[in-house]
Design a binder for these strands. Structure first.
Lengths: 201, 201
DNA sequence: TACTTTTGTTAACGGTGTTAACAAAAGTAT
DNA sequence: ATACTTTTGTTAACACCGTTAACAAAAGTA
């Protein structure tokens, strides 16, 4: 009897429609605006039915997170396969990573827990400018002392900050508490590379 | 008459007590758990009084964000002043940045909008491992072809991912929409430096 | 047809940020 | 001291949120 199969299929469809409705909400107003109630409203069912298919809201978000990592992995693999030299692969994958992040912004934010609070207002914070200027002036000085005094210091500042923030936030996502001292080797490694890239002939 | 001054002073104290209560809540249960109601409860006043001192909840968070950037800037300045060679300053500041982030985790999360959703469960996602393995294998291959085949590939992977994530997330915080192509130069710059650091003699 | 299981509903609990309407206290002027 | 005004605080509500218990309806099974 195909009745059990049909039920499974229907359940799958229902589940998919929940995700579909959720995704529509996310891409139209960001994942902060996603609510169980809005999903229920969109699929024209009452709220508790959603809990028949997902344990809770987090489970829905987790679904998209997985989807996101899968898409990213597929993208990286695809790009990697177009090259043979590892260094070229790494470079191409880096660009692919970047493109993925901005082409699938919602996915990326979910995957890496980017809350984006006062996103647009953060640039107006005076204290931020202060911290920025300290770093920029140092970068500037380092460049002037280097073999390439014509280097774009603003670009280098962005690189510097990005490396730092990347290291920190990846670390924070992966582990609670203060990371063991060995993790600082990653920092040391990255920052050495950065400084060398400034002084390099 | 000092009565106006007293009022201003009292208002200031009240404001400070709100921030103090809020901060206690943040450090004890994370800033996700912070609510106007809990603050009101802690200072033993009714809810709306808080709105006499802060426009809304975001304004309170913004206050801490500013504080955070101020503290970071002070820390960086202090460390910078202990060195004279710019390259040394950059390195020391990098370590100070790292320490600040983990010594003042709550500040850092606020400052850079780190939502931390399935923070502890993210490592269990199978799709993440898939994406990870693609990157790691490439790094491994690049290292084997390099002048330093004994290099720790896991460390280099972390560096690689951190650079990428740092670039992306800093970019996302600062601007909505897809960044102009010129911003990709930062990526190019950072990734070149990374690849060089692998191949470097 | 009678029974069981699945699927869906309504209604509520406890929580959130925010605000309107109003009471109480404090300060000011007569 | 009394009358008036401003400030400060309160209660109560609005509109949301995630989640769940209690129950009704439909579907499948004997």
């Amino acid at each position: 009897m195909g009745i059990a199969e049909r039920k499974i299929r229907q359940k799958e469809e229902f589940r998919a429609s929940i995700l579909e409705a959720a995704w529509q909400q996310v891409i139209s107003d960001g994942w902060q605006s996603l609510s169980i109630r809005k999903i229920a409203d969109a699929i024209e069912y009452s709220i508790p039915v959603i809990y028949n298919h997902f344990e809770n809201k987090e489970a829905i978000l987790l679904e998209f997170t997985k989807e996101g990592f899968q898409k990213l992995a597929d993208t990286l693999q695809l790009v990697k396969d177009q090259y043979t030299v590892p260094a070229e692969q790494l470079e191409a994958m880096a660009h692919a990573y970047w493109d993925f992040a901005f082409d699938h912004k919602e996915y990326y934010q979910l995957m890496f827990g980017l809350g984006i609070p006062a996103c647009d207002r953060v640039n107006e914070i005076e204290e931020l400018k202060y911290a920025t200027s300290i770093m920029i002036s140092t970068i500037k000085a380092a460049i002037e002392e280097s073999n390439h005094p014509e280097t774009d210091y603003f670009l280098k500042y962005h690189t510097y900050l990005s490396i730092l923030h990347g290291l920190v936030s990846i670390q924070m996502i992966q582990k609670e508490g203060k990371p063991d001292a060995s993790k600082k080797m990653i920092l040391q490694d990255a920052i050495s590379g950065f400084i060398i890239s400034i002084n390099r002939k």
